[in-house]
């Protein structure tokens, strides 16, 4: 009985710490939700303008962590792969890589301040200064 209870509690704890990541965008962005494909295109540099012609400005977190891992898992590509894509885009002069910020607070500020900005952070960090396009239910945090 005690073993069962312990296992249940651990599972609950695990599920509780499953990171929910929100994809946020500047409030002026003419979209209220995006599909996974669209997000991937944006971050791959294949989509560079919003429908209203405003350039897309993607932001990326620099610190390794669950949020980052969850986001890239959602995109379906590893971060290192994305970096290769960005490097190619950069060298071919196509477009700049997403802007890197140190932490979520900076990201939030940047996205809310940049028209056409789009980024990702943990759901609990979201506030009204930005609009939430998608919420990703991540996998439980590794031990």
């Amino acid at each position: 009985m005690r073993a069962v209870c312990t296992i249940v509690l651990l599972l609950l704890a695990a599920s509780a710490s499953a990171q929910q990541v929100a994809i946020i965008a500047n409030r002026s962005v003419p979209a209220d939700s995006l599909s996974q494909r669209e997000v991937l295109d944006i971050y791959s540099g294949d989509v560079r303008t919003w429908k209203n012609g405003v350039p897309v400005v993607p932001f990326d977190l620099s610190q390794d962590g669950v949020v980052r891992d969850t986001f890239y898992e959602y995109l379906g590509k590893k971060s290192s792969r994305m970096k290769s894509i960005w490097m190619k885009n950069l060298l071919m002069g196509e477009c700049q890589p997403p802007r890197t910020v140190d932490n979520e607070i900076k990201l939030l500020d940047q996205v809310s301040a940049t028209p056409g900005g789009i980024g990702y952070l943990s759901l609990q960090s979201v506030n009204d200064s930005v609009k939430v396009l998608t919420v990703i239910a991540g996998s439980p945090a590794p031990d």
Partner: peptide, 8 residues
């Protein structure tokens, strides 16, 4: 990944 970040 880290290497590429730096190179970028």
């Amino acid at each position: 990944d880290a290497y590429q970040t730096d190179i970028l």
